[in-house]
């Protein structure tokens, strides 16, 4: 148990630091940045303590906000995908999730990609609509969501392949 807490705290700190020190400054083609810290929320172990999960997700988003001076946009987006995660899990993994026996390292690869895609796109659309905060520029929001989303999904999948332990 302690081991799990330790490894998730470490993952939290590493993801936040990588996000704010490296990935926030990529600015590919002007303003496209990936936000792969959402992988922490996607791969959080599934159990019944949803309140703790919501609080941790909020804290994760707020930490990223603290570093990037963006108010509460990351916190809002993170807490939302943490809240709707059970629905997405049920949609993507179906019966495996129903029986509470899901392990992320041995689920079907296609289902995993769809799972990441849905969560990342919802996260990004909330993030950018709150950041731009202007209904008349909805096209810009969608454009940023699409481009940053592709970038984020790629990074999430690559890092989940690289760091998954085949034991």
């Amino acid at each position: 148990m302690n081991n799990v807490i330790f490894s998730f705290s470490l993952r939290f700190i590493v993801l936040v630091l990588v996000q704010v020190l490296i990935l926030n400054h990529i600015n590919f083609l002007g303003n496209i940045n990936p936000y792969p810290y959402v992988i922490f929320i996607c791969l959080f172990p599934i159990n019944n303590n949803r309140l703790l999960f919501l609080l941790i997700s909020f804290l994760l988003g707020l930490t990223v906000d603290l570093f990037s001076d963006s108010g509460g946009v990351h916190a809002a987006a993170s807490v939302t995908i943490a809240f709707i995660r059970p629905v997405v899990l049920k949609f993507c993994f179906g019966s495996v999730y129903e029986h509470q026996t899901i392990k992320f390292k041995n689920v079907d690869f296609g289902a995993k990609i769809i799972y990441f895609t849905i969560l990342v796109l919802i996260h990004h659309i909330i993030l950018f609509s709150l950041e731009i905060f202007n209904i008349s520029r909805i096209l810009l929001v969608l454009q940023k969501t699409l481009f940053s989303g592709i970038f984020t999904i790629l990074l999430c999948i690559v890092s989940s392949i690289i760091f998954s332990r085949k034991t």
């Binding site: 909020f58 707020l62 108010g71 509460g72 946009v73 916190a75 809002a76 807490v79 939302t80 905060f133």
Partner: peptide, 8 residues
């Protein structure tokens, strides 16, 4: 969510 929106 309310807290995050207030910060935003």
């Amino acid at each position: 969510m309310f807290l995050a929106i207030v910060f935003t």
